[in-house]
Simulated scan of single mutants.
Amino acid sequence: MRIPRIYHPEPLQVGSETALSEEAANHVGRVLRMASGDTLELFNGTNLTFSAEIVHADKKRVMVKILASHADDRESPLHLHLGQVMSRGEKMEFTIQKSIELGVNVITPLFSERCGVKLDEERLAKKIQQWQKIAISACEQCGRNVVPSIRPAMTLAAWCAEEESGLKLNLHPRAQQSINTLPQPLERVRLLIGPEGGLSAEEIAMTATKGFTDILLGPRVLRTETTALTAITALQVRFGDLG
């Protein structure tokens, strides 16, 4: 049986006892039905994992003892910042989950002219919290120990104007170059993925003025969630740690 992995966003020390968060305790105690003497693995956002044993478990509280720590760096040498124009329904959740499994480091949800998502400030804040929980869950599942951040949503123009080192890429169906033609080595990429209806001509022109390079994935038109994952995979194969 696979040992459960649980995120614990606090410092951990071998030999100490600590209480899991309410959400983690509920998952361990109610969902997994674990009890005293069972073992699990904790991670806290560093490149360390911690072996732990449950010393107390009830419906509301789970206490664990930290038995050992292990260095475990599973981060790609390629730093990827994904700027994803928000998509409807579960598509955004799917994109966040799978892009984190593929090694993305930062995700910024974006608004563009053709963005189909309309949320007030309160609902948007709840969405960001929900997406961050999805990021944590994805790390628990895939074995990453550093949890990527889901940044507050912003406009496409504001995101493109931010200063960041590395190559800036924009997926465009009429681009003249592909990921395979990009020069090596490459350590940082700021990747822009547009909405389901694509970026407007004005937005594409704006990205060019901000230093973005248009690239082509292939001859077929992909959905926005497929585009993000395909581009991330291709970048990780060429510059990161896939393949």
Rank of each mutant, 00 (worst) to 15 (best):
N180K: 13
S178F: 02
L182G: 04
N180I: 01
E196I: 05
R188C: 10
L186I: 07
L182P: 09
I179Q: 03
G194L: 03
L191G: 01
P183L: 13
R190A: 00
A175I: 12
G194M: 03
V189R: 00
S200T: 15
R190W: 00
G197A: 09
E202A: 14
Q176S: 15
E202N: 07
A208T: 05
L199S: 03
G198C: 10
N180F: 04
E187G: 08
P195H: 06
Q176I: 03
A201Q: 14
R190Y: 00
G197H: 08
G194S: 14
A201D: 15
A208G: 04
Q176V: 12
G197S: 12
P183Q: 15
S200A: 07
L191Q: 03
S178D: 12
G197N: 11
A175F: 04
M206R: 07
S200Y: 01
G197P: 10
Q177T: 11
R174Q: 13
P185L: 06
I193Q: 01
G194R: 02
S200D: 04
E187L: 10
T181I: 05
G197M: 03
R174V: 06
E196T: 08
R188L: 05
G194H: 05
R188K: 15
I193W: 00
A175Q: 08
A175W: 06
E202V: 09
A175H: 08
G198E: 11
S178Y: 02
V189A: 00
T181N: 06
P183S: 14
R188H: 13
P183C: 05
N180E: 14
R188I: 11
L199T: 03
P183N: 12
Q177E: 09
Q184P: 13
R188P: 12
E196L: 11
Q176Y: 07
L191I: 04
P195Q: 04
A201F: 10
P195G: 03
P183R: 10
L199P: 10
S200K: 03
G198V: 10
G198F: 07
N180M: 13
Q177C: 09
M206D: 08
R190V: 01
G197L: 03
G197W: 02
I204W: 01
R190M: 01
R174T: 08
Q177H: 11
A208L: 12
L186W: 02
M206V: 04
P185Q: 09
I193G: 00
N180S: 14
Q176W: 04
P195A: 07
L192F: 08
G198Y: 06
A175K: 09
Q184D: 13
